[in-house]
């Protein structure tokens, strides 16, 4: 196996599609092998005569086999992340000879405390493009390499408000030097954050506040949230 690059929450976008997983055409041997591996010998999957007498044209695959393929799709996508939940509804019977394609898409990103979750919509299609299994999953990822590093060292997770926040902080930091520019006597308090920052800048350099230092100080004052923005 090639060494997979890690997947982080900050790089995932709602609407992202998972790399489709194409499975080889299923045959009766593959179904029997799965019956043995899952210890599920429901005769509908292995006994042609029984399946016919039960009103089916013949044996068919276990629904959970296709769910297993969806699990594979999720695991390959999430890599070192965790799958927290996996659900599947078996919509259509999967017959020997069917060639399945597993697909998925990111439908939601959310933070709960210091944990970052990505919800996926999943489905399996047969060679005719028919929906055979419908599913969904919840995965948990580290926000970023920095978050992973913190947690692996036993520190608190990185808290980033939401997807918009880092860019707002970036804008704020970009605007900051402009706000800081006026020499002290002319400084007018137009916002709380600004007056606080001016107060922190004691003693204020005569000419111009160095933007880099100001940004760093803001980040410190704002805690972990700023830290992530600073990293960018």
């Amino acid at each position: 196996m090639a060494v997979a690059r890690k997947l982080y929450y900050e790089n995932v976008r709602v609407g992202d599609e998972l790399q489709p997983l194409l499975k080889p055409a299923l045959d009766r041997v593959a179904i029997a092998r799965y019956a043995a591996a899952s210890d599920d010998f429901n005769p509908n999957h292995v006994d042609e005569d029984y399946a016919r007498r039960s009103g089916f044209p013949g044996v068919f695959a276990h629904g959970s086999m296709a769910m297993g393929f969806l699990g594979q799709l999720c695991s390959e996508w999430v890599r070192a992340g965790q799958v927290k939940r996996l659900s599947a509804r078996f919509v259509k019977i999967i017959w020997p000879g069917d060639q399945l394609t597993c697909r998925g898409r990111v439908v939601e990103k959310r933070r709960e405390g210091g944990e970052y979750y990505v919800d996926l919509e999943l489905w399996v299609e047969n060679q005719k493009g028919e929906l055979v299994v419908k599913g969904n999953a919840t995965t948990r990822l580290f926000h970023s390499p920095e978050d992973e590093d913190r947690q692996r060292r036993g520190l608190s997770p990185l808290i980033v408000e939401d997807d918009l926040r880092p860019s707002l902080v970036e804008v704020f930091e970009r605007e900051l030097p402009r706000i800081e520019v006026p020499p002290r006597p002319a400084a007018k308090s137009t916002s709380r954050s600004r007056s606080r920052l001016v107060a922190e800048e004691e003693p204020l350099p005569a000419a111009k506040a160095p933007p880099a230092r100001t940004a760093a100080k803001t980040a410190t004052a704002r805690g972990a949230k700023g830290a992530s923005a600073r990293k960018k």
């Binding site: 429901n42 276990h62 927290k84 939940r85």
Partner: peptide, 15 residues
């Protein structure tokens, strides 16, 4: 009587 699996879900707390 036979049984047919209609849906399944799992929630995981650790690998």
């Amino acid at each position: 009587r036979g049984l047919l699996h209609a849906d399944q879900s799992f929630e995981y707390f650790r690998p």
